[in-house]
Computed example of a mutant assay.
Amino acid sequence: MNMLKIKRIESIDLLKGLVMVVMALDHTRDYFHFSAFLYDPTDPVHTTWPIFLTRWITHYCAPTFSFLAGMSAFLISRRKSTPELSHFLFTRGLWLVFIELTIVNFAWFFDIQFRTPSLITIWSLGVSMIVLSVMIYLPKRIILIISCLVIFGHDLLDNIHFKDNMPWAMIHDGGLFNLSHGYQMLVGYPVIPWIAVMSLGYCFGSFYDKSYSSVRRRKILTYIGITAIITFIIVRSINIYGDPIGWKSYDAISKSMMSFLNPQKYPPSLLYLLMTLGPSLIFLANSEQLKGRIVNFFCTFGRVPFFFYVLHIYVIHVLALVAAQLTGYGWNKMIFHGGWLTDLPGLKGYGFPLWIVYLVWIGIIAICYPLCKKFDAYKMNNKEKRWLSYL
């Protein structure tokens, strides 16, 4: 039983660490690549395959991490009572929403007036935990049914819109809203279907019960992952349901393929979730036996994902200030007073080739790794400090 627990934790931490490191690539591209201030890197009309794939691979990060957060919540339930777990999820969810609107928002914009409060990744995780804190009182079968209904059915809401309605935007639509003169609210991650992704992960945590052998678990997760990928290909090909935009056929096959592989992320469509969670499940199913230095390297980030998330944004943004100053644009251009959308014109022409972006990304990971390793060791040696469980 103890050996199973170690393998299970390591495989989850490995996948968490991988998606966190890949996520850092996307954020590095946001601040350093020339295309970030000119066009959408997934737009078949303007992009190239290297740029497209650099952005596309990062699509796996948010769904995988939200799913694994739910799985981790189930694993915690094995040593906490339901009321204790509910209290932890609720309070940690509130804490994450607070951190999103303060420390994380400042990291993205460096605006001391907080003129563009943004509800993005950490907010969606926080709200999902709050909802999950209530859902765990339901039978797991009911949680599974609700999760699947939301994931497979939420695209029925794609054509329902309410103009300038922030509550609906927070639930499903997303958008940018004027609050007052000079202030805007960005809703980047509506809570549907993110709450269902986390609760689905909670249900999948049951596969790590002692009643499941590693062989049986691997077969089940691999089968579900392959089924998700096949379903994505079939439904995407039909091009009727599962994504509000659908894919387009271009004169060049390569551009059509880009469109096919680019379902909507904001909010994540059914096809987006099938495309990303399917391969993630296959990797999770077949990584329990992996060992070695590389595995340990990524597991370090996977054990302290929140710490790494906050740290890497500050590191990236500070380096971007330096880059903007050295290239003649001025460090102040990287202080986003009105958010990305209104500040982009002043940065047109700024940026570096993709290979430079990759070098900067590697450097950022190298900077963050020793700090994450020290914090991981501190957490391991101070398990009695309850506040560390919130980080």
Rank of each mutant, 00 (worst) to 15 (best):
H87A: 13
I195H: 05
S211N: 11
M20F: 14
I367V: 15
G346R: 12
D43W: 04
I51H: 03
Y266E: 12
K373R: 13
A285K: 01
M129F: 03
L274Y: 01
K163T: 09
L371G: 09
S86P: 01
L261F: 15
S211K: 15
I57P: 08
V295E: 05
M170V: 12
S72H: 01
Q113R: 08
H172F: 14
K5G: 14
W247V: 07
G246P: 05
R216Y: 02
L138Q: 00
P117N: 08
M129L: 00
R386S: 13
K248F: 07
H59G: 00
L277Q: 02
S269D: 00
G351D: 11
E10K: 14
I220T: 14
S213Y: 11
S180D: 12
L284I: 00
I112E: 09
Y60N: 14
A36E: 08
S389E: 15
F34C: 03
H59P: 02
R386A: 14
G153F: 12
I12Q: 09
R217A: 00
I142G: 02
C368N: 12
K80A: 12
T102E: 10
A324Y: 06
R141E: 12
M166N: 03
T276M: 05
L132Y: 04
A323K: 03
I112W: 14
V315F: 04
Y314A: 08
V197C: 01
I226S: 15
G292W: 08
S180L: 10
D251V: 07
S206N: 03
R92T: 05
V150Q: 07
S214E: 02
G278Q: 01
K265T: 11
G174Y: 10
F260T: 11
L326H: 05
F301E: 01
L15S: 08
R303L: 04
N165T: 04
S259N: 07
V127E: 07
G349D: 10
I362D: 10
S199E: 00
A228E: 10
K210S: 15
L326R: 09
G338D: 10
R79L: 02
K7P: 05
W168H: 07
L344K: 14
G201H: 00
V19D: 05
S133Y: 10
L149M: 14
T342E: 15
F352R: 00
I6A: 13
A320S: 14
